[in-house]
């Protein structure tokens, strides 16, 4: 069969394992747990989660500091740092830039990936492994390496493609590459959960052309995967620093970093807001991607 051997979602996935395929086989797990285990579990949760939460809490404390009261040795509380986000022109410009890059990246990623992946399933299954390999390749090539190799290409674009070639929006080109592994896994798990081949055969036999088959039949069936892929792409673009800083584009992370030298309170406030924003996005898709559990489970139960 054409399914890649030795490739399952249950095992350690390069990325987005639990993010994408959350299929707990929890049947009967709640049965009488020994007391020792329950205590150990709570201890682990307290300690490890505590370590994860402390810096986030510190960001909240730090960014809401007001005047220091010498007698009580405590800080007043104010939201000034958060309000300052909106009055800082550099910051607002960079946020808009990053959001524009995010939109372009999501668009580019979907246009590039969805038809290609559907095509490999229905027409050229032999190429599936090749496409998978290329999509996961960015995991083996660190961003810092990509930026070394792509700097000459961006220099060329800046000189030859006019205003657009020199704008920060060109970062979308490389961000599409960076999100490939995440997006591929998200869309792939959706594609595996539906019978893509039969669906497209049915659509084709009813007279639909390929564009119509893909956009009116397949795409609505893999909405969950497309949504996850898009959210992961947005989160990645908003957090991207390595490439934009070394190519000297002022994305939001670059400006947060520069601002941190002058006004760390505002920088911490923006960072916290961005992390919370990304968290809410991921949390919402994990709650509202309908039937994500069943799908992943079905995909796993499929004989390889």
């Amino acid at each position: 069969m054409s399914q890649a051997p030795g490739f399952t979602y249950g095992a350690a996935a390069p990325e987005g394992g639990a993010l994408i395929s959350k299929s707990p086989k929890g049947a009967g797990k709640g049965r009488r747990t020994p007391l020792g285990q329950r205590v150990a579990r709570i201890l682990v949760l307290l300690l490890v989660l505590g370590y994860l939460i402390l810096p986030l809490f510190a960001m909240l404390e730090f960014s809401t500091r007001g005047d220091f009261d010498r007698t009580t040795k405590t800080f007043g509380r104010t939201l000034d740092s958060f309000a300052a986000i909106f009055s800082n022109d550099d910051l607002m410009t960079s946020i808009v830039t990053s959001l524009e890059i995010a939109v372009l990246t999501v668009f580019g990623m979907l246009v590039l990936l969805v038809p290609t992946m559907v095509w490999t399933v229905v027409r050229v299954p032999r190429m599936r492994r090749v496409v998978e390999f290329l999509c996961l390749l960015p995991l083996a090539i660190p961003a810092i390496v990509i930026v070394v190799g792509i700097a000459p290409i961006y220099r060329w674009m800046g000189q030859n493609l006019g205003g657009f070639g020199a704008s920060a929006l060109t970062l979308a080109f490389i961000d599409v590459i960076l999100v490939l592994p995440y997006s591929y896994r998200a869309i792939d798990s959706s594609l595996r959960s539906i019978d893509t081949a039969t669906l497209s055969d049915a659509a084709r036999s009813l007279g639909a052309g390929w564009p119509r088959t893909i956009f009116s039949v397949i795409v609505p069936n893999i909405r969950g995967g497309i949504l996850s892929a898009s959210v992961l792409a947005i989160a990645l673009v908003l957090g991207e620093y390595t490439i934009s800083s070394l190519l000297s584009f002022n994305t939001v992370q670059v400006v947060i970093y520069l601002l941190g030298k002058r006004n760390p309170y505002v920088s911490v406030a923006v960072s916290l807001a961005a992390l919370v924003f990304a968290f809410v996005l991921l949390f919402v898709i994990s709650r509202f991607a309908p039937g994500a559990d069943n799908r992943a489970q079905r995909a796993e139960e499929e004989p390889a």
Binding site: L19, L232, Y241, Q253, Y257
Partner: peptide
């Protein structure tokens, strides 16, 4: 679900922001 979503953010998209989190701590 909370831990998974939070882990997704912290593990993959933190970068500069995590450095600031530790500066604040």
């Amino acid at each position: 679900q909370f831990v998974i979503a939070a882990s997704g953010v912290l593990a993959q998209f933190g970068g500069v922001m995590l450095a600031f989190a530790f500066l604040a701590t």
